[in-house]
Design a binder for these strands. Structure first.
Length: 271
DNA sequence: AAGTGGACCTGCTAGC
DNA sequence: TGCTAGCAGGTCCACT
């Protein structure tokens, strides 16, 4: 579910409402990808500040540190006044004076990790080595082109890796490559400066558009207010193998790269 | 250093 | 109807 747009849409849907709330209780369900990293009672009585996003992580500011949240493959957050009893896949509740923030995550690839300012633990490690934000003005065609030098891996898995630029996952990497007209099998270092420029623009536009459409709801994504996204209705290639390209009519192909599906138009997208 | 494949975990769907 | 194989929005880690 959650690539950059879904994470950002989630953030926008509860950040203003949770700011200033005080934590009253914490409930943990089954283990997530990493342990919380503190005793739940250490969070009690702390007041929440701003909610930030870095790559596909959310960062909830607390008085004495913060919580780093990742939604994994199947996670979503809900912020509600009166939550029902936790279901089988509800693995974290943050009960506050303004409502309860609940993480639902069937596959449990997600995580909630505590960190404070002197932290040298998991949270810091997770954020180290992340690439540039796609909306950062420093993310340019020239940056992308030079970062790809010395990379013989194909451009699509290079976008997913997250060490050059963050935010694109399996849907938006395929969509951005289609918009840029770049064959996903093109090796990184073979991408010309001009094509890197087109790709940088396409990636930013694709992600921006997806945020504006509320993200993609392929199966069960909802923002923290329960609202579904609509980007999936605008996908040009993702999940459309065998169907005609919206631009030229050629059948969309599905291939596997790095154990993930890639979708592209063999006519519109060139090396 | 960069590239590759396995691992984590559960649910759903297509096919027999 | 029931079982099984394959697939799913992520990314860390060990190994070459």
């Amino acid at each position: 579910m959650p690539e950059l747009p879904e994470v950002e849409v989630t953030r926008l849907s509860f950040a203003a409402r949770i700011r200033g709330a005080r934590i009253e209780a914490v409930r943990l369900g089954k283990p997530l990808r990493w342990p919380l990293g503190c005793e739940p009672r250490e969070l009690l009585s702390q007041t929440l500040g701003d909610v930030h996003r870095r790559a596909k992580y959310l960062w909830l500011e607390l008085e004495r540190g913060g919580l780093l949240i990742h939604l994994g493959m199947s996670g979503s957050l809900a912020f509600v006044d009166h939550p029902g009893p936790p279901g089988a896949h509800d693995h974290f509740d943050l009960v506050t004076t303004r409502g309860t923030l609940r993480l639902t995550d069937a596959r449990r690839f997600g995580a909630v990790v505590w960190a404070n300012s002197t932290d040298t633990g998991m949270a810091k490690k997770l954020l180290a080595g992340l690439g540039i934000e796609p909306f950062d003005p420093a993310f340019t065609g020239n940056y992308l082109h030079s970062a790809l030098q010395g990379r013989r891996v194909a451009i699509k898995p290079a976008l997913l890796a997250g060490d050059i630029v963050v935010g694109a996952g399996n849907i938006y990497a395929s969509e951005a490559l289609f918009e840029a007209g770049v064959d996903p099998r093109t090796r990184g270092r073979r991408l010309s400066r001009a094509r890197a420029q087109r790709l940088a623009v396409a990636l930013r536009r694709t992600l921006q558009s997806a945020v504006e459409l509320g993200g993609s709801t392929l199966r069960d994504f909802r923002d923290a207010q329960g609202v579904a996204g609509e980007f999936q209705l605008h996908c040009a290639v993702y999940g459309r193998q065998g169907q005609p390209c919206t631009r030229c009519g050629t059948a969309i192909r599905r291939i596997v790269q790095g154990q993930r599906s890639t979708y592209f138009c063999p006519r519109c997208q060139r090396p």
